[in-house]
Amino acid sequence: MDKSLNLKRNIWLPLLILPLWYLVYRYLQTMSDWLIDTAFNMKPGQHLTEALRFFIFEVPKVLMLLALIIFFVGIIRSYFSAENTRKMLEGKSTFAGNVLASLLGIVTPFCSCSAIPLFLGFVESGVPLGVTFSFLIAAPMINEVAVVLLFGLFGWKVALIYVVTGLLIAIIAGYIIGRLKLEHWVQDWVYKTKLGKSAEEEEKLKISERLRFGYEAVREIVGKVWIYVIIGIAVGAGAHGYIPQDFMASLMGSSNWYSVPLSILIGVPLYSNAAGIVPIVSVLIEKGASLGTSLAFMMAVIGLSLPEMIILKKVLKLPLILTFIGIVASGIMIVGYLFNFIF
């Protein structure tokens, strides 16, 4: 196909899809209600009916939100490369550097498999260790999939609380790690490795090419997480109709003092992405789990993952990994208790 034709299509396609997206989204509730009440002719109020209604409404809603947000995130990310982020962080003082690194962690493209090259690239070009950690904490914890699911299933307030507290943890934990001067706990070969001069030329991208980044992101991320969304919401729907109210109140309620550390202990080794865990947590809350405990649980699952720690073992000595886990877990714990106390 002619390349310029292809690129033009990138521009007018969203203009067509967006109104359609809006219409479907707007009438999703009506359509799913019609499907349940009229097409399937199910009795309202029964467990099975309500579980199915929840499932049929939430799955397309969350997937549509995901596709839309990830499309725009993909475009925004085309303006931020790891190389630029590194340049911005080079020689930054502590604190200001920690804040900037945490913010950049949200917008810079990141996957846990590129944690090592990123870490090496940062540390070797003179980005302070603590600032690097701020980035490494914020990047996986505050990702678009988590934020979209929180927004879709809990509303914007909880999504905002999650982002803000996540940022604070990244900033403060990174700052503390920087203050502790733990450079000797970085594997010895790290500082000896020579970083090659990046031969990659920064080319100016046309807007149509940035749109292509958006499509790519949707294809890649939604293609990967859709199955977790469906499973997560299916489990949620099942629990929604069948598990009694207040089932979780004794275990994960705010009156239970050990609920926060317990949920973190369970959350760290649990490896799931945000797409799978958030729908389940939404049910935990409905069944009496408190907001603080649930937030702590999600942050532990999403932000502190065991596989990532194992990857980081290549560049960090064990005491540093443990310190890192300890500081971040403490931060999550404070967030958990704080929100249990407020609400």
């Binding site: 790891a82 590194r86 590129s114 090496l120 690239g121 020579k194 001069k197 031969a199 290549k314």
Partner: peptide, 13 residues
């Protein structure tokens, strides 16, 4: 090999 990858100056695999 991560060391060789870094040799190319690549930070994003």
């Amino acid at each position: 090999d991560i060391v060789k990858i870094m040799g190319y100056g690549v930070m994003h695999t």
